[in-house]
Design a protein around this nucleic acid. Structure first.
Lengths: 109, 109
DNA sequence: TTAATTACTTACTTTATGTAACTAAGTATA
DNA sequence: TATACTTAGTTACATAAAGTAAGTAATTAA
């Protein structure tokens, strides 16, 4: 794949959103900290990919993992400040969707 | 893949952006109508996938294809009103990137 | 006649994602 | 004591998506 001349910050930001599921994961976490299994079932992602995404997002400083030594162990993920800063992005997508998307376009995926 | 309970319009909007390359294609077209080979080389996408994406985007009413019978034939793609309406989305991503992304994060893709 | 140009398509390879079963640590139950 | 349950993953394998490189069709130029 060739290098491009577009702003690298912008490109790396797009590379977060253009991976499948990341948008929905962040959207979910905007509602507050959540556990692995909750995210998994609420957005319908597979555990394999969720695990991969959360590690990516943690590495990028967008998500933070918290371990609570209860029984059984409780682990929660929440957004960092950097992650919370994506809220306007998700909101602008929501606005566009409300104005321009048909409600039954899911099949066009 | 399970059904989710999240707003279907929002989900289908995310499904546009979370396909690889669509964000960059739209970003390019925000600068005005462009031909296939121009988009191809400016963002570094392969012809195979670009062809696929442009068809998708056309089907969703985001991009319009214009044929000019010159020699050799000139074909240009530009954004529809619906496509242009994505400008604020791309701008909010740009803003987030400026504030939060490191310039050298490309490798984290 | 051969080559060049544009906008693709085709065949094949590599990477990403989906599915389902499995593991580890701790606790509860029979 | 052995079995089962829970959460948070991981592993192995299958399918789908994307990358690569070569090919095609139409038209024109050398």
């Amino acid at each position: 794949m060739a290098d491009t001349t577009i702003c690298p910050k912008f490109e790396s930001a797009l590379n977060i959103l253009n991976k499948r599921w990341t948008g929905l994961i962040i959207f979910q976490l905007l509602e507050g900290a959540q556990r692995f299994s909750t995210i998994e079932s609420s957005i319908g992602i597979s555990g394999r990919v969720l695990s991969e995404r959360l590690k990516d997002l943690e590495k990028q400083g967008i998500v933070k993992r918290h371990v609570y030594n209860e029984t059984p162990v409780r682990i929660e993920y929440d957004l960092t400040e950097k992650g919370l800063a994506l809220k306007p992005v998700l909101e602008s997508i929501q606005r566009w969707a409300d104005n321009w998307q048909e409600a039954d376009n899911q099949s066009l995926v």
